[in-house]
Design a protein around this nucleic acid. Structure first.
Lengths: 207, 207
DNA sequence: TAGATTGTTAATCGATTAACAATC
DNA sequence: TAGATTGTTAATCGATTAACAATC
């Protein structure tokens, strides 16, 4: 289906388009066009069509796109229907917010386990799960084979944890650790809140 | 100093370079080169030099860059030394994590006030601040003149809150509300955790 | 059929990389 | 002076936009 490798710019735009389609669906819109979609997302109709064309043909000449159909295609393209098994490491305040506020099941993942190193947290519950000891991690992974891990650790321990996770079979890491991580054989998506805040600072400074 | 408008791609790279320089400083490195910096950041030496050249000349031919000096220049460029007055709206679990975990003062902002609409939260403390009632917001803004606001609200109330804030003088919004926001006359930087997670899903799906 | 809108090819624009003269 | 490395100009590469034939 994909001609060549799809560029990062295209991949980063897919979630926004997906969210818009969900909204249109909720408001009862049945058909739409690249023009209408582009307007709402602040991009050109060309770009919408060009982006979609990386993955196939989802419209009809003259009539545009069926909203629900296109939304389902995007789900397939992004793999949101897969529900990949995932775990979360670090049940501090950050881990708590992420586990309780992120809709994993609507974003392609199922959160199977939450781990922390602090003895006083073990056994408490978070997002409907017991917090488990890090000593359980290896056997848990052997059994449940999580493909992804959410890292909510201080930056000092993030790199080592990432390496351990990869050695236990994890292939994707969602990293909240305020530092960059380098691991072979795994995809890492880092959320750099500090960088995001600094870009706001820059913009205000150069208004 | 800036020839033309600096592109978004350049602006987004500045924080990473800044973080690297802080690290180098901490490990006692005194001088460095575009080659060394590029290697650590996974980009070309050309790109480092090209990015910096948007703002001035900070190196010496033959000798590279003085780490501390360049770090200080970047602080100036991004405006990190300004400590712009900021407020936070929404003291739920998300607001709690953001106010307690983000190092505002190192990122160019000073958090002056935290607001929430829920009566049961008013008066409790967060990040060394009392949580204030939304009724106080107008007079507080008139007095303290916050330039930026952190939005930690559910998406239903985000747009209206943003508009109110702008009418009260806020010029920059750091938006955690899981939705896009459109306001005239203000810079908005939105943190889309869901989009970030979906790109990880895509990558794992297309491994 | 006429109008609309796709998918795709071609043209433009911008961003990245390479090259090199200037100079520490 | 010789070696290194900048700042900048030119060349390349990729991404966005425009144009248009195909067709619903």
């Amino acid at each position: 289906m994909q001609k060549h490798e799809v560029s990062g710019s295209v991949v980063r735009r897919l979630p926004r388009l997906y969210r818009l389609l969900r909204e249109l669906e909720r408001s009862g819109v049945v058909r739409t066009s690249s023009r209408a979609l582009g307007e709402k997302l602040g991009m050109t109709a060309s770009q919408i069509r060009q982006d979609l064309s990386c993955f196939g043909c989802f419209g009809q000449q003259g009539c545009g796109y069926a909203v629900t159909e296109l939304r389902m295609h995007l789900e397939q393209i992004m793999g949101l229907d897969a529900l990949l098994p995932a775990i979360l490491i670090g049940a501090g305040s950050l881990g708590k917010v992420v586990s309780e506020n992120v809709r994993f099941e609507e974003r392609g993942f199922r959160l199977l386990g939450i781990f922390d190193i602090k003895p006083e947290l073990i056994g408490k519950r978070l997002a409907d799960q017991p917090i488990r000891s890090m000593e359980e991690l290896e056997s848990f992974c052997a059994e449940q084979k999580p493909v992804a891990a959410v890292l909510c650790l201080p930056k000092e321990s993030a790199q080592a944890a990432a390496e351990q996770l990869v050695s236990l079979g994890v292939r994707g890491i969602w990293n909240f650790s305020h530092c960059d991580i380098a691991v072979e054989q795994a995809e890492v998506v880092t959320v750099h809140l500090d960088d995001s805040l600094m870009t706001l600072c820059y913009k205000l400074h150069n208004l």
